[in-house]
Structures are given as C-alpha cells and as structure tokens.
Nucleic acid binder design. Structure first.
Lengths: 191, 191
DNA sequence: ATTAACGGAATGAACGTTCATTCTTTTACT
DNA sequence: AGTAAAAGAATGAACGTTCATTCCGTTAAT
C-alpha cells in the first residue's frame, strides 16, 4: 500500500483548476478539495499561493526537456536539429494541453514576466539547448542576421500560436500539418 | 471651460493600472482615484468591472484600424499589402505599448478567450481586412497551403512575440529591424 | 505482546483583509 | 426649488492564511 503523494496531488489539482478557471477562479480551498486534502495541508508543502504557482511552473518545465531531447542528435545538420526540437516541442504541447495552457497563462502574468526577466538577465539556466543551437546557427550564418531574442521570437512565435489554436479547438493538427508548420517556422528564421 | 470627459478619464486610468499592475492588482477604488472620480461614479458609466474591462478592449481595438489602413492600397500587389499591414501593426504596438500590453493581457485571460471564440464562430466583424487579404492570398496560391487560422498564426505569431519583447525591453527595434522582421513573417507564410 | 507516550502530519473552522458593488449624502446645474 | 450627477462611506461576500486540535504511525516501556 503506497503512501499517498500529497505534494503531487496538490500540484495536479492546482494544474487542473488554474488551467480551467484561471488564477482568479481557483481559490486555495477548491484546490485543497480537489486534491483531497485539508486547506491547511497545502501550506505544509508550499509556503504560499504564489510559491505554489511558481513551483508548479518549474515542475512542468522540467518535464519537457527529457521529452524533446529524446533522439536528439547533437551532430546532425543544423536544419534537422531545428526541425527535431520544434516538432517535438509542438507535439509535446499537443499531447499535454493542460501543461501548455498553464505555461501560457503563467508567462502572460506578472509571475511569468518577472520570471522571464530574471532568466534573461541572470544565468541562462535551462534554455541551453535552444540557445546553443541558435548561437551555432547564427555563427554558421544559416540564420538571418538578427539578435538572438528576435530569432527566438521568429521561431517560437508561430509555434506557440499554432499550439494555442489547436488547444483551444480552433484547428485540428495532424502529423503532416505539424511537420509543415515547423518547416514554416524554419522559413521564418533561415537566411 | 470644457466639461470633463469622465468616461474617458476612467478608461485611461483603467488602461494605466491594468497594464502596470495586471487585472489582479488594480481594484476599482484605485482606478477611481487615478481617474479623479469617486468609486461609485465608475458604475454610472460601466455596469460592472467586467464590462469596463471589455469596453476598454473594444475601445483600444477600434483605434488600430484607422492607423494601419492609412495609405493602404487595395490594388497593390499581395506581398506589399502584407508588408504594409504588418509593418503598420508592429509600429502601432511599439508606439502605443500600453495598448499592446493591455490587449495581450486581455487575450490571455478568460475574457479574451471567450471573446475570441465568439469571433471565430460568430460573424467575422472586424478582422475583415486581414481575413480578406489572406483569403485572396490563399486563392492566388501565393500563400502556403494551410487553413486560414494557421496562416494567421504564422504571420502574427512572430509579430506579436517581437512586439512583446520590445515592449518588455528585451530588444530595441529600429526602423530597419521592424521591416526585416515583417519580411521574416512573410517568409513564414509565403509559398 | 500489549500498552503508553510521543511527534509530526493533517485538518478545517476562524480570522482579518481586500474588494466589487450599493446606498445615502452632498454638490452642481437648470 | 427641483433634478440629475458625483462622491465616498458602508456593506457583505470571497479569499488567503493561521492555528488550536485531532489523528496516526512509531517507539519505548512493561
């Protein structure tokens, strides 16, 4: 008989509710209820509501890397590495829509903006794979002559927009359309 | 002595505060204070907080069209019409960062999602210029073979991402970079 | 083996604060 | 004087957080 993973239950409930109802519409009491714990219990695992919101983000972000890096060949040509990462990322978002929606909501909130600012100014931390890839591409002159930030926008802007529309039910993406979408992202950044 | 435009003052204060503090951090009392009116007065002009939020959005959206349509030549070749609208739009967001940030926040909130769903399913309403343009482009086979929704994502995804990073201070866009960014958007959608 | 004591995890009612909205009073205009 | 607009104090609902108490598994003693 496994001991119940209360922290995990709380995170799961928070993901469901924050995603479905927004940060507004998900009071702690409701999260506790959905997680099957008492309201006070949450505070044994998370210092405050804000901390819960941020921890949930980190938790979700960490799961992405193993997924997109599976089968990633450091030595492959630049274009196919780009396509690999882009496709995997889009697939991941489609496969885990709750994750995608939560991260989007987070990014477009004061939490996310502060978070992003820290990341830009502080040490690079996680985005290493992408940063490395793009820096190489810029050096080899396969990419357009833009600052790195803009290249990220050109590549991920459309990707995220497409993921959003899929997740909201405005389009239904099949395998071929995923591939062609990422190729269009490539067209945007390639020289 | 001009009679004070209270509705306008309220909208302006709401724009400032919602943008700077988020929907969370801007209580009605503060908006009233910044607008220089009593708290109750707001309710003479807007039925509720939610209505105020939505009206402000509509108000901002309406101002965009005159700006981007100035000098728009219906008869020009497709590519240059695309570049015209894209450039103007990006310029507008850069010139009115509060407007941009508010609209972004709105879009990524329950309000905006409901709003967008209505727009997609109901009558087209405003987006006519863009929709018309893209439908023509699709018909003439200058655009990639994607559903309209995806084409929108490919074109506006990067544009909005770049605007966001500029507005947050992560890049400084000059005229030439604006133009080149829109050309990159074009690369993403062109066949 | 049984029971008693202990410690930390969990609980959820209660608290204090915040905030949208309402209501009564005051002001300004005709 | 009479009416419409404005003000801002009052209201009550909602919410995050706290804390005194309960529960339960483990250890220690008999």
């Amino acid at each position: 008989m496994m001991k119940p993973d209360r922290r995990g239950e709380i995170l799961k409930a928070a993901l469901d509710l924050f995603t479905e109802q927004g940060f507004h519409g998900a009071p702690m009491a409701l999260i506790a209820m959905q997680a099957g714990v008492g309201a006070g219990t949450i505070y044994r695992y998370f210092e405050s509501r804000d901390v819960l919101i941020r921890e949930l983000y980190k938790d979700l972000e960490e799961r992405i890397y193993p997924y997109i890096l599976a089968g990633y060949a450091e030595t492959a040509p630049f274009r196919s590495r780009f396509l690999h990462l882009g496709t995997k990322l889009l697939r991941y978002f489609i496969e885990y829509p709750l994750c995608f929606r939560y991260m989007e909501q987070f990014h477009n909130s004061p939490y996310g903006i502060a978070f992003r600012r820290d990341k830009m100014l502080g040490k690079e931390g996680h985005c290493d794979v992408f940063r490395e890839l793009f820096e190489q591409g810029a050096a080899q002159q396969v990419l357009k002559d833009f600052p790195l930030v803009i290249l990220f926008c050109l590549a991920f802007g459309p990707l995220l927009a497409v993921a959003r529309d899929h997740v909201l039910g405005f389009v239904q993406l099949d395998d071929s359309m995923i591939d062609r979408t990422i190729e269009a992202c490539w067209d945007a950044v390639k020289r």
